[in-house]
Amino acid sequence: MLDLLLDPSFAASIPRFVTPILLAALGGALCERAGVFNIALEGFLLMGAFAAVLGSYFSGSPYVGALAAMLAGMALGLVFAEFNLRRGGDSIVVSIAINLLAAGLTTFLLRAIFDVTGAFSDAGIVGFGPVRLPLIEDIPFVGQILSGQSALFYVALLCVPLMHVFLARHRLGLRIRAAGENAEALRAGGVEPRRVQLVALLACGALCGLGGAQLSIANVNLFVENMSAGRGWIAVVAVLLTRGRPWPLFFIALLFGAVDSLSFRVQGLGLAQQFTDMMPYLATLIVLVALSWWRARRARGETR
């Protein structure tokens, strides 16, 4: 087992799994901090994955694909805002509807545009290639993890400190936190919280879109029905666990991504695929239980 963890090729595969979860979770974190209970990350991711393939296929550029993915995510963010913020629909109901909408639209468009069911792969889909970082790639072990990943991985990595500083020191960051903590106070201060929440939703859509792009045009060069496969939900859990704080979020995403990667890896060791497929969800549950147990213990300690 230890051999496996220290195997550089295993370690190098972790970022592929971390990136979509991290990007989606960062988006979800913005919503969480802004007081929008967005559990439609699964749908956002899926839509992004499809739009990325669409953009890349028709333009021949992964960057256009990523842009299309961001736009698609933002479009869903706009839908969320329209029905939750403006029309006052319940956020859980809206989330469930958006998850279904994404599942429906992607399969529908898959047939309507490409005339295939299940999956679409084509040489015309151009994916992100590995980005080699000079100097860093020469560092043993670490270099193999940090270098040679997709551009989206570096974007995700950069987003963590950026979001931390943004929330702590930026005007909009301050207002996002206020919208989530005490929206009424923000309104009394003269800033309409729903506007701030709309911005958070759009940014969340863009980030999730990028996460989807990582799934479809960086990890592989194809789109499969329902290819987000629960990662959006894992991102939701990561957000809830960390209450949307960027750094803890990063480490949780790293953990979930590593388990995801590990489950892929141990398939080669003769364990039935069904059991390895289960691992990310069981790991998520275990982390949930462990963290709440730890928090309860700490809360007891505090009062003593």
Binding site: R171, R177, A178
Partner: peptide, 26 residues
Amino acid sequence: FMLQDTMTVLENIVLCAEPVGRFGFV
């Protein structure tokens, strides 16, 4: 009170009337 409990006194006072520098940082 229209206050943000998890923010500092300073953050609460400037909220919605923030003096901003470059790129909108407070």
